[in-house]
């Protein structure tokens, strides 16, 4: 008895070779020296220990910016989702049947999604000036890209039955959306908006680093003054707020779906 011969797994070997070459190449191009890391490890642990001794006296000053951060996230999420809702209907294949329109607007959405949030923040700080408004615009665009995709994917998976029924009864486009599409996806929409809000709270904490308002501004100041005890305090506050918001939003989403 003999076993069937296995084909030479050349694909595996090619992948492994690509991985190893990529590793060597990336270590070369990024000047990676693991020795350098351990050499200065003392510096790193010093910062870390500083951060583990938060400057509690600074707490009252952190409270205001943190609230501003949350406000930025709320408004950004609101504007972004409001824009994303009609846009998602425009790029859903089962609502708009014109392939050119769908293709074009999807392309735009995909490009918006690839731009990193901090880069948007840097651009908008240059346009509208330093302050939370730049942060809100950044978060709105960021939300628009993220939620727009989730929205249209949800719209495309709905049951076509009600759509046909409402259409057969002589409804126009808006009535189809109101009576056939919206009831099927409302819960998903709310859930996705909450999810976007969670991500926005995290994102908004660092936007201030480039001047876009919120706690990031203070984080940047503390970092440039090497006040790692204050940095530690702010990181702790961010952690608590993010955990609390994640918890509430997670419970709500569970109840919705």
């Amino acid at each position: 008895m003999s076993f069937p011969k296995r084909a030479f797994p050349w694909q595996k070997w090619v992948m492994t070779a690509v991985m190893v070459l990529g590793l060597i190449w990336s270590a070369f191009i990024t000047d990676a020296h693991i020795g350098k890391f351990f050499e200065n490890f003392g510096e790193f642990t010093k910062i870390f220990i500083d951060m583990c001794h938060p400057d509690w006296a600074y707490t009252p000053y952190v409270f205001g910016p943190m609230v501003e951060t949350i406000k930025m996230a709320v408004i950004g999420t609101l504007i972004g989702s409001l824009l994303a809702f009609p846009y998602a209907l425009l790029v859903a294949r089962n609502i708009v049947t014109n392939k050119v329109v769908v293709g074009l607007f999807r392309f735009i959405l995909n490009i918006v999604r690839t731009v990193p949030d901090l880069m948007l923040a840097a651009l908008f700080v240059a346009v509208v000036g330093i302050g939370p408004v730049a942060g809100v615009i950044t978060l709105a665009i960021f939300t628009f890209g993220m939620v727009g995709k989730l929205f249209y994917e949800a719209v495309e998976t709905i049951d076509p039955g009600p759509l046909e029924a409402v259409r057969a009864a002589g409804a126009g486009k808006l009535e189809i959306i109101r009576f056939a599409v919206f009831p099927q996806i409302a819960n998903y929409f709310v859930s996705y908006v909450l999810y976007a809000f969670e991500i926005n709270v995290r994102a908004s904490t660092v936007l201030g680093y480039l001047g876009a308002g919120g706690i990031g501004v203070y984080l940047q100041q503390a970092l440039s003054m090497f006040r790692y005890d204050r940095v530690g305090l702010m990181v702790l506050v961010i952690f608590i707020v993010v955990l609390a918001i994640d918890y509430v939003s997670g419970k709500t989403r569970e109840a919705l779906l």
Partner: peptide, 27 residues
């Protein structure tokens, strides 16, 4: 969860302190 919430920029700045500015801190 704690690692996830720690702002990546702050982490990058800590590593810049340790290994100097450059790609390796980013890595």
């Amino acid at each position: 969860t704690a690692i996830r919430t720690f702002p990546e920029i702050v982490m990058a700045l800590m590593f810049i302190k340790a290994v100097g500015p450059g790609s390796f801190a980013g890595v």
